[in-house]
């Protein structure tokens, strides 16, 4: 980076010299991706659990799930981060910056994914559950073999988009000193007073991850196309059987 120091940069140099900051920011991208992985990998299973809890008969469990989901969705992620990092220490719970960010982001992603998964489960027709009962399946098999494959068709595209939102949200962890992309960008920008150039580089890094994933999500949404689409493989004639029309 010292190569920037000797000369004052041209006024619009940030339009073409931003790429020089990419290597400096890459460790931050690693942290951001790790945080995203944690918030998705831990948050979505918790979200699934919360989605099931909101439909149980026990009123206590239902209310617990509703409160966790509504607080997670209703508070800005920034407030969740500060609540964990600066609030919990006042009752003696101390997490370091990365763990605080993980807890806050997991909470948020669990809450949002719970709503997405609940919608997906709600889209599975009642008759599918009845059919599973009629076959005297146990609950695990019913969810594993009948309900989830259909619910996931509805839920997966929004879950991929939520993953992008969580990736964007990792940028907020800079306020609690997690060394992700924006933390490094801000630091470098203030040292060299080259904010425009550094933030351009940061924007390019975010775009490079976000745009391909969101295009993929759009494609996925079109391909999966909702509950109860009959898959072509089901209709295909079993190998070796004789087509009916050939005999007549």
């Amino acid at each position: 980076m010292s190569s920037f120091l000797p000369t004052t940069p041209a006024p619009l140099s940030w339009l073409w010299d931003w790429y020089q900051w990419i290597p400096t920011l890459l460790p931050g991208l690693g942290t951001a991706l790790l945080l995203t992985l944690v918030s998705v990998g831990v948050g979505y299973p918790l979200g699934f659990g919360l989605a099931l809890l909101t439909e149980t008969r026990s009123a206590l469990a239902r209310w617990f799930a509703i409160v966790v989901v509504e607080v997670g969705r209703g508070l800005p992620i920034l407030v969740l981060l500060l609540l964990v990092y600066r609030g919990l220490p006042s009752v003696g719970i101390l997490f370091d910056a990365f763990l605080s960010a993980s807890v806050a982001l997991v909470w948020s992603s669990a809450a949002y994914s719970a709503e997405i998964i609940r919608t997906g489960l709600g889209a599975v027709p009642r008759g599918q559950f009845d059919a599973a009962y009629a076959l005297s399946m146990n609950r695990t098999d019913m969810y594993r073999l009948i309900v989830l494959p259909q619910a996931l068709r509805v839920s997966i595209p929004p879950l991929v988009n939520l993953g992008i939102t969580m990736f964007h949200a990792t940028s907020l962890a800079t306020v609690i000193t997690v060394e992700e992309i924006m933390h490094i960008a801000n630091l470098e920008g203030s040292i060299y007073f080259r904010y425009m150039s550094v933030f351009m580089a940061a924007a390019v890094i975010y775009l490079a991850i976000t745009v391909p994933v969101s295009l993929y999500a759009d494609r996925l949404a079109k391909r999966l196309g909702g509950v109860m689409t009959v898959r072509k493989t089901v209709l295909r004639r079993p190998a070796g059987s004789v087509p009916v029309s050939a005999e007549s």
Binding site: P11, W14, H168, A169, S171, L172, T174, M182, A185, N186, G189, F193, R194, Y195, M196, F199, M200, A202, A203, Y206, L207, T210, V211, S214
Partner: peptide, 23 residues
């Protein structure tokens, strides 16, 4: 639309606050 929404709001905020000031 893809560029505006593909970058976290915080990045735009810093560009509007620190970046524009530099210009």
């Amino acid at each position: 639309v893809h560029v505006v929404r593909g970058v976290p709001a915080l990045v735009w905020l810093f560009i509007a606050f620190f970046g524009l000031a530099e210009l």
